[in-house]
Design a protein around this nucleic acid. Structure first.
Lengths: 265, 265
DNA sequence: GGATTTAAGTTTCATTCGAAATTCAATACG
DNA sequence: CGTATTGAATTTCGAATGAAACTTAAATCC
């Protein structure tokens, strides 16, 4: 994934739809080159193609979310991947940053085993046969492609790992991290009980949101990986509570105004 | 899915690759019509498109297998679907007939709940939000998209249902039904212990094969749904052992000679 | 230092493509 | 009974496409 392709992705995400001619002009390359870029991006599920144009994959699931601020998410995922040693077994919950983390780990071929309740991640890692995946069973949540319910907890109890990676939907100084969906939140809490360290991967704008379900108190979290948009008082609070904070510098910080609201599915 | 589309599918499966021009000539319709048919079939994952042509999806997974003798499999799946009552909870294991059965049940919107260890089926049913899916967790088998191992057994024990639907890889009069893969076979046996009736869906040519793992004795099987190609002595044997035999008449029986070997993934 | 390979991008062209307007037949409606 | 209405298929046409041959630049090798 090169520079230009990232830029195309960002452009398509702001404009919803761009023709091959428009993109070729904007990037100063031939239409053939743009077409090849679009073919690649489509094969990765990051956008859809129409005859003569690229269209934002506007679906409400992880696949669609992954395309939004892809570059930023990738930075976060890479920073998190550096925390994992070869041969390790990790738990990963759903969320677009987490999906990219899983992909990074699998692509690096370091003999990782992934425990997850995300069907999306399991399918996403299918093209990396070297990486073992164990799916924690449960009731299938159609839209988020995540498994929830008592089975997840029961399955998680068969394991104990060092690290759980997860996303979040919001944060408030008083209450800590929060989620949007009760069942998903319960599932990830059950997973956290079977992991030594709870590691949150999230874009910084989530620190300005709040979900409706209490997820984790600050003191329950071992590490947070986010981008430089995190409010200074929040980062101070996290550090004071002993949270390891990894802040990645994102090249282009997305300017949330005109863009579609983004939330972890 | 109309007549012509079925026929196109069969043709592409025997020829590997056919151009839009060839298909239009063969079907006596315009190229535009063929293109629309191909768009539809591609959207269902039953073939791939190239510029100006349709190509057999030659992958070794369920998606690829489903295209082979689609019409025959659909007949079997529909006959099996008739055995299920509204609101029922059923177990379904993997296999291409079973995937079609799951789809039939979900499309009929009868408030079915599906328990399965097949990630493919779970994803396949995603577009039917009305159908509940519970995935039995376990280790993810990359190619077959099935979950196996001790977790599957443990998860299955949380349930008890009336019917388990599954495929098979072979049959021999002396030993009964057989599978190709030990782990998958163990998983389906564990599921069978939690179901009142074991129902096998299989194309008849499997009765002329044999797998390497003992799967089920004839007396363990409650019902078999297959097509009219089943050898007469086999059907007699099954009936003598109290197996309910449903035989569907397939319009065109595939002539296995020049075709790619087909096996349940 | 020069030759060779590799990768990324471009130009060109015959072919295929999607969109829209049109035909035709079956079904529904008042 | 006549008239909408719908759905499937067709015709037409300018635009988009993939394939192949070509250019350029960087990396590799002897």
């Amino acid at each position: 994934m090169n520079e230009r392709r990232m830029k195309i992705l960002e452009l398509v995400n702001t404009e919803q739809r761009l023709t091959v001619v428009q993109l070729a002009a904007a990037m100063n390359v031939s239409q053939v080159t743009i077409r090849k870029d679009l073919d690649y991006l489509e094969s990765r599920g990051l956008l859809r193609r129409e005859h003569g144009a690229a269209v934002l994959d506007n679906s409400d699931d992880i696949q669609g979310r992954m395309a939004i601020n892809y570059a930023g998410k990738l930075e976060i995922a890479r920073a998190a991947a550096a925390l994992v040693t070869g041969g390790e077994t990790v738990m990963i919950e759903s969320g677009s940053c987490c999906a990219l983390l899983a992909e990074e780990l699998a692509a690096a071929q370091r003999g990782i085993t992934v425990l997850t309740n995300s069907v999306f991640i399991a399918e996403h890692l299918r093209r990396f046969p070297e990486t073992r995946v164990i799916l924690l069973g449960g009731e299938y949540q159609n839209q988020s492609q995540v498994l929830v319910g008592p089975l997840v907890r029961q399955n998680a109890e068969a394991f104990f790992v060092d690290k759980l990676f997860l996303g979040t939907d919001g944060f408030a100084p008083a209450t800590g991290f929060s989620g949007k969906d009760l069942l998903r939140t319960e599932a990830v809490q059950a997973m956290a009980r079977r992991a030594e360290k709870t590691i949150i991967l999230t874009e910084s704008h989530k620190f300005k949101r709040q979900g409706v379900v209490a997820q984790f108190a600050v003191t329950d979290v071992h590490t947070v990986v986010t981008d430089s948009g995190i409010p200074p008082n929040t980062s101070a609070q996290l550090r004071q509570n002993g949270v390891n904070l990894h802040i990645v510098e994102t090249a282009i910080e997305p300017h949330g105004a005109a863009r579609k609201e983004e939330e972890t599915p």
